[in-house]
Amino acid sequence: MVNLLFYAAALVAVLTAAGVVLARNPVVSVVSLLSCFGSLAVIYLLAGFQFLAAIQILVYGGAIMVLFLFVVMLLNLGGLSPEAEDRDDPLFHDRRRSAGGLAVAVALGSASLIGILRGARHLTEPTNGFVLPAEGYDALPALAEAMFTRYSLPFEAASVLLLATTVGVMVLAKRQRSAPPAGEERP
């Protein structure tokens, strides 16, 4: 029963995560991301982390996604116009900078992946891995310990990755807006 629930939740999480990137409509992306967070919360619940599940819904579902939605609605993004996907944009052609960015992204991603895999290996060793506490928010100290000792590297890498993503989004959005329409001089 629990396994079945886990696989269902995991499937939903993966599908909706794919939906976030694949959807053409930004609001659909936001809704998919929301359902992704919901299914993650279900997975946390199945693992016995009630507190983490509630926080997941409270912080990500209740607060952050509302802000996302707010911004998306305010921007009222249409589909990208052909002009916006301007291939002459120097940003796309500066190979050196693009390669640098890619390298940093790969490094951060693999660092978090390696960290998670390392942690996961410990999970399978009953003597060394941390034991899932039984119930409720008593699990909190164990969770904090895991996050700030064993998983501190992937945790930090993920946060830096998020920061880099934020900066990247800013850069892309800025470029798009300041690019002059075709056949018009920059004032």
Binding site: A54, I55, I57, L58, G61, G62
Partner: peptide, 10 residues
């Protein structure tokens, strides 16, 4: 209660 209640804004 707070977490689920916060979802109703959607």
């Amino acid at each position: 209660l707070v977490a689920i209640g916060g979802l109703s804004v959607y």
